[in-house]
């Protein structure tokens, strides 16, 4: 009993504070979504009216789909790029250290700066345009900023998040002891069989973690969207911010917040299940 109190006291300023703060914020979001704390003062009581308002808006569903699309593409592409590199750099060789340091460099660049740098490079007057025009590939510069497919945003997310996926995956890949792979080879497993039956199942967790964290981060993106995204669409975060900021609709923003968290949750579950399925299927192949 005394011990429990001691643990409680130790946890209070750290975990305790975090949970109190995040709990209050989360409660506030959910409560406002259901009509409580209505600052406009029109009504103050439990109601589904704000859900009705938001969920019937076309702009909201555009934002929802858009964020889901950006987040899923970014997560999958970042992991798809990071995984083979992590495998390749499993065993150190000359130059591999410099290479992995450079791969991690984007971690040092804040998101807004990254967005600015990309806009600079792809802008009408940017390096890509000048280079391609100079090389004679294009007759004149083209407009690539704020493209309507969101390629710039996905590119930014991948640029920023790939190092993170690389860290997680290379940690998992390097944690596989050499003798385990040697044993598999010794028992007749070729390169591909070793990948499917040993490496893949032993790195599934890291891959799921990377996908989920990148998905959640990209789903909640605001700055890439507002700087490099197409002006005709919102992301969930930018829609939420515009409801709260320019329209003063806190309760509507709360509905978007809850939906964003739901998107994060279901996206996470979906990606985790997908990876599980792929690992299982590949493992079963003879």
């Amino acid at each position: 009993m005394r011990n429990a109190i001691r643990i409680g006291l130790l946890l209070a300023p750290g975990v305790g504070l975090v949970l109190a703060f995040m709990g209050a914020v989360l409660y506030r979001a959910v409560a406002q979504a259901f009509g409580l704390y209505d600052f406009s003062g029109t009504s103050d009581g439990l109601s589904l009216a704000h859900w009705q308002d938001v969920l019937t808006t076309k702009r909201f569903w555009r934002a929802f789909q858009w964020s889901a699309y950006i987040a899923a593409s970014s997560a999958v592409i970042a992991v798809a790029l990071a995984y083979p590199i992590a495998l390749w750099l499993r065993k150190p060789f000359r130059g591999s250290l410099i290479l992995s340091a450079m791969l991690k460099a984007p971690l040092l660049v804040p998101g807004l700066v990254a967005a600015f740098l990309l806009v600079n490079v792809i802008s009408y007057h940017g390096f890509v345009n000048e280079f391609l025009v100079w090389a004679g590939v294009w007759a004149e510069p083209r407009r690539m900023q704020n493209d309507s497919n969101g390629f710039a945003i996905i590119g930014l997310q991948v640029w920023k998040q790939m190092p993170f996926a690389f860290l997680l995956l290379s940690g998992a890949v390097q944690a596989i002891p050499d003798p385990v792979l040697n044993a598999a080879q010794d028992l007749g497993a070729g390169k591909f069989a070793r990948f499917r039956k040993i490496i893949l199942p032993l790195t599934t967790k890291a891959m799921q973690a990377a996908l989920v964290l990148i998905f959640i981060g990209a789903a909640g993106d605001f700055s890439f969207q507002t700087v490099a995204g197409p002006p005709s669409v919102n992301s969930m975060a930018s829609y939420m911010a515009s409801l709260q900021g320019s329209e003063g609709d806190w309760n509507g923003a709360a509905v978007v917040a809850v939906m964003l968290m739901a998107l994060s949750l279901f996206g996470a579950i979906g990606l985790t299940a997908l990876v599980q399925l792929i690992t299982r299927t590949l493992g079963r192949l003879a």
Partner: peptide, 15 residues
């Protein structure tokens, strides 16, 4: 993988 030998590893190297 093509040899007719099997190894018992010091660290066991179980999967």
């Amino acid at each position: 993988e093509a040899r007719d030998s099997a190894m018992c590893f010091q660290s066991y190297a179980l999967f």
